[in-house]
Design a protein around this nucleic acid. Structure first.
Lengths: 339, 339
DNA sequence: GCTAGCACTCCAGACTTGTGAGTGCTAACA
DNA sequence: TGTTAGCACTCACAAGTCTGGAGTGCTAGC
């Protein structure tokens, strides 16, 4: 009972603080939420909450502000998800439905997510490790340059230009192309390295150089992780906080320019479908100690393939953002499924 | 002579203001630049310059600040380019030399430019209108979906997925593929629409639907302007200005999220190789009245194909930025030439 | 266990004041 | 005619002071 009210107080503090960005005091609390007790009582609860580290005072005689720990408790036990309205859901559906290819889906998703949440949005490209080769093409651009185009069963196209020291004969190239096609077509990416091991053996010594370089390029293409690409959008929302944003937004903007950082932010979400929230210093990235990250895995079929999420100040609307991230993750999975 | 000194005063004001971001007064001016006259004289010149609209006072008893018009005059007649140091040049060369494909060149360029100038950098993809078709491939992904891959002589790969209402027969597809290859291979993009006009006539009626959709997709691919893509980087530099940046950086960040806006910013630079500077309200984009844009065309061979540039506050280091943009444009052209 | 009351703290905003940078003007000078 | 020195004037800015009010913790009583 007592315990219950204390949590209610914490919830109220978080909600008010998120709404106003100003320290919230005991009196304002009883006025805005019908807690059924007097400010004095709330003060006792607040003292206890502060003792336990969930809230803090910027200075004496100021209201309380949730700590990272407080947000954590709020998210874990108190927030609940705020379901999207059905017009919102419909908007998502329609918006994503009209995308034409993978790049387009990614760009649209990031825009959508940024727009709904009014935060910075991140979307990671789906991993290709389970892809298999649909087609491979080798085309000469000049006597010493050629291009390799790799098409996967999911319709993804990868390209590589290859520079060769000595001139390439059309015949040799055709030969390699044909054999390569036979060898790898239909094979999964993960099987390719194995296959390539013995591939060059079937060619005469004078072609070895060319074969080797083509082989290396293909190997590079199938082992390169496209899922290390992250699309970013909505950075303008950062500026909206003005002074309310702790310190400057510069370190945050800087961090967000690094692909590596974006990947770390999206991180390894634990569960498969659940939404992960990293609050403040729980975040592994330097310079982003005052931001929170809400991420979810999205999947094609029922295997999860990559993450997406939003980044914002710790005093964000967790319930809303969690709902949005979850919903978008679901829809993206569905869209990719269809394609 | 008098005229000369007045311009020297303007130059000094711009330089000091750019360095300090604070209104500059007559006394400070004679101290920092050896103008050989007294503050009182400078004041007269300043009054004249203000009269003519080149400088302004934020308020009485404050120093002077250059107006957009003042910057304009400075850029046109006073600044001169500040050549890059040779280590800088070497760094550019090395940095760009190690790029592997077009996307990579674009990304590296934008990073480089942002880093050198400490501003937001923009790089437009080179136009393809003079490209020609090297190879075209049609590959079935499922019974109703196929992918078209178009490879240009410059090594650029364009892809499109095609959805078909009725199942596609392998034989029909092979047929179309072969004829399409004959029809368009080696042809320039600009010639393709003409060629396609009569293309579908050679197929029997039951294949018309498929042929039509493939045709439409190809047409779309060759007429789509890849040069409408712009890469952006260095947005974190915007935040560096803090309060020094007039108003908020939010509208600027918002504007920069729109591809269309980026294109307008890069705009049609007049001359071929010269650097174009748009100052403050000269800028065609709403919300960016207090930013300046320095752009240059870059070219493959000696035809100019696209633009790159930087965006920053009007009180930027024009001499430095102009030099950097020019140099990078040159190197990028050279790199693309080699490829 | 809750509440009312009270003394205490201390920020935020309003107001005041002094300082100094900067100006424009005028009169003298070269 | 252009330059300079001097002077009175303006006005933002910083520092200092004051005050109201929001918020707290504590204690005694219900």
């Amino acid at each position: 009972m007592l315990e219950d009210r204390r949590l209610a107080v914490l919830r109220a503090i978080v909600q008010d603080y998120v709404a106003t960005h100003e320290p919230v005091g005991s009196k304002a609390l009883v006025e805005r939420h019908h807690l059924g007790v007097s400010p004095a009582t709330i003060r006792n609860d607040m003292a206890a909450l502060e003792e336990e580290g969930y809230i803090a005072q910027p200075h004496t005689s100021a209201g309380r502000v949730p700590t990272d720990l407080g947000y954590r408790l709020f998210v874990d036990r108190l927030s609940g998800v705020k379901p999207l309205s059905s017009p919102e859901r419909r908007a998502i559906q329609e918006f994503l439905d009209s995308s034409v290819d993978l790049d387009d889906v990614m760009v649209r998703t990031v825009r959508l997510l940024a727009q709904i949440t009014k935060q910075v949005a991140l979307v990671q490209y789906p991993t290709l490790s389970r892809s298999s080769v649909r087609h491979i093409e080798l085309i000469a651009l000049s006597t010493t340059r050629l291009i390799m185009v790799l098409i996967t069963d999911s319709g993804r196209v990868e390209q590589r230009t290859i520079e060769c020291a000595s001139p390439i004969s059309e015949i040799a190239l055709g030969d390699i192309r044909a054999r390569l096609l036979v060898a790898v077509s239909g094979q999964s990416f993960s099987a390719i390295p194995e296959i390539l091991l013995s591939f060059s053996a079937q060619f005469p010594v004078e072609m070895q150089q060319l074969v080797t370089i083509i082989q290396a390029t293909l190997l590079d293409a199938v082992t390169e992780r496209i899922d290390e690409r992250v699309v970013l959008g909505g950075t303008a929302h950062l500026a909206r906080y003005g002074d309310a944003f702790p310190l400057s937004i510069q370190p945050v903007l800087e961090a967000l320019e690094e692909q590596v950082v974006l990947l770390r932010l999206l991180g390894e979400s634990s569960a498969n479908t659940a939404v992960t929230v990293r609050i403040g210093h729980e975040n592994p990235v330097e310079g982003m100690e005052s931001t929170s990250v809400v991420t979810a895995r999205y999947g094609i079929g029922d295997s999860s393939v990559a993450s997406l999420g939003v980044v914002g100040p710790t005093h964000m609307d967790y319930a809303g953002n969690i709902a949005a991230v979850q919903a978008v993750a679901q829809y993206v999975g569905r869209i990719l499924d269809e394609q």
